[in-house]
Design a protein around this nucleic acid. Structure first.
Lengths: 354, 354
DNA sequence: GTGAAAGCGCTAACAG
DNA sequence: CTGTTAGCGCTTTCAC
């Protein structure tokens, strides 16, 4: 089960390379510590000659500044903590953007993962111990109470989850607008029998459900309103689709709560022998990589992760500077790809619409 | 696009709560700093009475020890850095297990993500600045050279990627054994026409491909050996399946390079009107959450992320203690679920085998 | 069992 | 432009 590789490096005792310290560099370069500090930070206050010499010596010694010590000394750590779910495509997208957004503001990120065996409070706790100046929490569960408590200790920004707590900053997509766009997109293609597989108790599902209903009513599709119980996973979507396909009159289009849900629904429909989008149109929500992943590109609603990430960082810094928490709502965008098209009997439907 | 929430907390100036320090707790509890330290670390050297009092005061003040300062002072940081890909289910699984494994050894984890806009060297660089004692790198790209350089500075463990560099520790699944198990599983169900959609240039694909061939030969299925170009994504799998289905004589079973590849193949087969596993059996590799995600549970080869994570942490600590880098190979395991069954003409096939 | 003193690696204030 | 002094928050001797 295991075997040694050829070991050509120093054997036995801990001969771990003593990492050079700033003092070592200073000594080797024949200057004082603060000067090395100045050079390493690229601050002004050192002559070009010294700068070059110090840089050269540092490189030779393989010196790397110690972020820990640096942040300890500085009054502010310029560190933003991020709690996110491993295994969640949307979170992955946001985290990637957060790195970019934070860097633009001169902040570093400290990541702390949430997973089935690692709960949200553990993740947050570790970020606090690392002395993050603010926390950005990408969450799924509704431990709002806990977040509120934490927010009294350190600024907290919740992404993609609405919260009543006024001490917690919120960045979220406009779920109502998003679902409205989805329904309208399908309607414009000629659909009237548009169903929705909802997100059950997941944050955001109430808004999406209600916006779906309202939009259907506004379009005078009242009689076709059809919401089935779903959830955030592929399995939920498949279950929802199973239920929809058992209807005596099937919908011609289905909007899933999110991409994973829609992917499950898509999966189920195809296994049931339907063609997508010829027989039935399907839409997701999030525009996570997942929607581009299957070899049929899924139509979806983009949550604009880039903007959400930038706004989250912005709110975080605001709150660090003592400004009150606020809520920022980011407009979603329609991304029409290959899983939506006119319904089978499109002519008839279109005539009914006008 | 944005609006203020009701702001009931302190307005204007930075009134960020001054985080209590150990000194504050000591003063409030009427003891010295070191004693508070002892109590917070749960070390021995404090009477039960003091311990309780300090704990009570600390809780009241909302004191949280500063990990940064702590690790700075301690000779060893007891920190393991992890570079992983956001958006990669298998990596997510491993990271989750790494948290568990590291905690068992009294180590903390520092996460640094790799993504399209954030390359591996950036991720690694940041971990080094944080003074991690060792680095665990879950990688996809083959920047072996760079890893070797880094490994001269700090112990590096590569997970799921073979490396010749003897200064880098390696933990990986036994790809040859895994593919052998897959072929044998299908053979035992009665298949002979077993095809393989490979991983192209992805680490591990050479071993899997060659093991597939060898096992097929050993089973006397030489004439049915069929390897098509694939890759690590759903799209690659779909492409591979398309090619396989265009054969004059189609295979009755297909082994994908990994779960994503197999999922794409599965997807394509079903769209092509085939039933799985009735018409064709499909196997994945990794046993990532993805294989359990689709509503049809996929048969696959488990890489045993738990063991790999534990071994990675173990190697990391070994190397920190000055032991030479080595390679640990973890045995994979067959996970037979719902996408594999006897071939359509099973009776005939089985008679041929014996 | 408890406290005093020192110092981890770095940067911020100052002085020269 | 450069060096000296101090101290971030904590843990580690080592006395008492």
């Amino acid at each position: 089960m295991s075997g040694d590789a050829e070991a050509d490096q120093g054997a036995g005792e801990a001969r771990r390379m003593h990492r050079p310290t700033m003092g070592d560099v200073a000594e080797a370069a024949g200057v004082s510590r603060p000067l090395v500090s100045i050079v390493m930070r690229d601050a002004k206050g050192a002559s070009e000659a010294t700068r070059q010499r110090v840089l050269k010596v540092a490189a030779e010694l393989g010196y790397v500044p110690d972020d820990r010590a640096r942040k300890l000394r500085q009054k502010s750590s310029r560190l933003i903590g991020v709690a996110f779910w491993l295994q969640h495509p949307f979170h992955g997208d946001v985290v990637e953007q957060l790195y970019l957004a934070a860097a633009e503001q001169g902040y570093d990120l400290a990541l702390s993962a949430v997973a089935p065996t690692r709960d949200e409070s553990t993740a947050i706790e570790s970020l606090i111990r690392e002395r993050c100046e603010a926390l950005i929490v990408l969450s799924l569960k509704e431990e709002a109470k806990h977040l509120q408590t934490v927010s009294k200790r350190v600024p907290v920004i919740s992404v993609a989850r609405r919260l009543k707590e006024s001490t917690v900053g919120v960045v979220r997509g406009d779920d109502r607008a998003g679902l409205r766009m989805a329904v309208e997109h399908l309607a414009s293609l000629g659909h009237t029998r548009i169903a929705h597989i909802d997100g059950a108790r997941v944050p955001g599902s109430v808004e999406r459900r209600s916006s779906y209903r309202k939009t259907m009513q506004r379009l005078r599709f009242d009689e076709h309103i059809d919401v089935v119980l779903g959830g955030p996973t592929e399995e939920d979507g498949a279950r929802g689709m199973a239920e929809l396909l058992s209807r005596s009159v099937r919908p011609t289009a289905v909007i899933g709560f999110n991409d994973r849900c829609a992917a499950g629904a898509l999966d189920y429909a195809i296994r049931a022998g339907l063609s997508v989008p010829q027989d039935i149109s399907i839409m997701g929500y999030d525009d996570s990589r997942l929607s581009r992943r299957t070899h049929v590109q899924m139509s979806t609603i983009s949550q604009d992760t880039q903007t959400q990430a930038h706004q989250a960082v912005r709110l975080a810094i605001e709150q660090v500077n003592g400004m009150p928490a606020r809520e920022v709502i980011v407009q979603p965008q329609l991304v029409a790809r290959e899983t939506t098209a006119a319904p089978p009997d499109s002519a008839a439907e279109i005539s009914r619409r006008s």
